[in-house]
Design a protein around this nucleic acid. Structure first.
Length: 308
DNA sequence: CGTCTTTGACCAGCGC
DNA sequence: GCGCTGGTCAAAGACG
């Protein structure tokens, strides 16, 4: 029942389109096809195709440079963040004691530690991340872990464009990570529910299951508040008897974690045109970066020109 | 003060 | 009927 979505944190989609099938068997990669004997009209189009290919190559190069720049920026960011953590850990004991005196916050912190809960997803999913990529959690003091949560509580928040209200959390039998239950808080009558849970096999993978369909337009919190302040009330558009389920899987720890960070700040709108547009953009981006695709595309265009 | 999160309790479905 | 499990409720607390 329902469809399953696999959304990679790298924000790229690897599409195995079997592009080699488009390539003429006897034409090696990177070798252009000779168009001897083609009509003048076709040669004009061939020039256009060549221009397009040159433009494509140029854009690929620009994309590569941007990617490198982004990677370099993120490495600097990580370095600065680790230094900041070092500075924070070297604060005076007085500050430490003051922090420890905050019983409420200590309570929350203890909950985080006792239950091996480290990372907050959607303000809900707390799961054991004492893997190697979170050594600082174990080694650093509880104060530091509290500061981490306090300073950047939304770092790992995965939003999908809707406003959700958490109404429960449960530890299921087959997964040590708790499952969080959300309702759409935009409209009380909205039947959509969302379950978020880390994968049992790979805790770095976040699985969100959507049940039902929104019966209202997508709206951000600010928009909703603005609407409510004007006296508007959410008006149900339609109610579907069917309740399709969509499962979204998010890999939070791809090797290039900079891209995962980008995802953390990215808004998803699974059912919305924005999300679909994003998908199309991702696919287009993936395709344009694929040298096999570009060469196959060139071969295909060339073949069509030949036919003309 | 309103909204949201947390969390223990409760309920329903299912298998034995 | 009983126990287990997943899902939901609702009171209390946190937060802006």
């Amino acid at each position: 029942m329902g469809s399953s979505w696999i959304v990679d944190s790298s924000q790229t989609f690897d599409l195995d389109l079997n592009l080699d099938s488009f390539r003429p068997k006897d034409v090696p990669r990177g070798v252009q096809i000779n168009f001897m004997g083609v009509e003048n009209k076709a040669s004009v189009k061939l020039d256009e195709a060549s221009d397009l290919k040159a433009e494509l190559v140029r854009m690929k190069e620009e994309n590569r440079r941007l990617t490198e720049t982004l990677s370099a920026m993120y490495e600097k960011y990580i370095t600065l963040q680790s230094r900041l953590g070092d500075v924070a850990s070297m604060t005076s004991e007085k500050d430490t004691m003051l922090a420890l005196l905050s019983s409420r916050k200590r309570k929350a912190e203890n909950n985080q530690e006792v239950k091996s809960d480290v990372i907050d997803i959607d303000g809900s999913i707390n799961c054991n991340f004492n893997n190697n990529n979170n050594n600082n959690v174990e080694s650093s003091s509880s104060e530091d872990s509290y500061k981490k949560l306090k300073e950047d509580p939304k770092t790992k928040v995965v939003k999908d464009g809707y406003q959700w209200r958490k109404y429960g959390q449960k530890v299921t039998r087959d997964n040590p990570c708790p499952r969080a239950y959300f309702r759409c808080s935009y409209a009380p009558a909205c039947p959509v529910k969302k379950k978020v849970q880390r994968s049992a096999e790979d805790p770095s993978v976040l699985v969100a299951t959507y049940e039902g369909e929104h019966n209202h337009p997508n709206c951000t919190k600010s928009e909703r508040q603005a609407a409510l302040s004007k006296g508007a009330s959410p008006v149900p558009i339609s109610s579907s008897s069917t309740s399709p389920t969509k499962t979204v899987t998010l890999d939070l720890t791809r090797p290039n974690s900079s891209q995962a960070a980008v995802v953390g700040a990215h808004r998803w709108e699974i059912d919305s045109p924005e999300f679909q547009r994003q998908l199309v953009e991702q696919m287009a981006s993936s395709l344009t970066r694929d040298p096999e695709f570009t060469s196959a595309l060139f071969a295909a265009i060339s073949g069509r020109i030949m036919r003309y």
